[in-house]
C-alpha cells in the first residue's frame, strides 16, 4: 500500500504542513497544501481510481504526466493528469470510468 512519510518522523525535518480538503466522488478527503491530487490519493493508500474500457483499474504509472493513466475529472473538466495537478482547497474530483458495462 502506498503511504506518505509522516512529517513528524521525516528525517528531512519538514515544517508542520497545512491542510486542505477536496472531494473525490463526493467523499471529503484531507490533503496537504502543495500535494498533487494523485499525491493525496496515494497518501490515503489508494493506488487506483480510473477504470479502463476493459474494466481494469488504473492509478499512477509514470508519475510525471506522460502516461495519462491517472487522469480524472477535476471541477467538471475531464482528463486532467492528477499526478501533475496541484490540489486546491475545495477541488471536486470525479474518477473516470470508461468500462463498457458502465452506463452512467
Amino acid at each position: 500500500m502506498s503511504s506518505i512519510v509522516p512529517f513528524e518522523s521525516d528525517p528531512i525535518r519538514p515544517a508542520e504542513p497545512r491542510c486542505l480538503t477536496i472531494s473525490v466522488d463526493g467523499e471529503r478527503i484531507e490533503g496537504l497544501r502543495g500535494q498533487s491530487i494523485a499525491g493525496i490519493l496515494l497518501a490515503q493508500g489508494r493506488t487506483a481510481w480510473r477504470t479502463t474500457v476493459a474494466g481494469r483499474e488504473r492509478g499512477v504509472f509514470c508519475g510525471i504526466g506522460v502516461c495519462f493513466d491517472c487522469v480524472g475529472t477535476v471541477n467538471g473538466e475531464s482528463d486532467v493528469r492528477l499526478c501533475l495537478r496541484r490540489a486546491r482547497d475545495g477541488d471536486t474530483v470525479e474518477t473516470q470510468d470508461d468500462s463498457e458495462e458502465d452506463t452512467r
Binding site: 506518505i4 500535494q35 496515494l42
Partner: peptide, 14 residues
Amino acid sequence: GAAQALAKGERIAV
C-alpha cells in the same frame, strides 16, 4: 521514475 518522483516531490512511498 514514478517511484522516484513521488518520493522526492511528495514524500510518498509507492
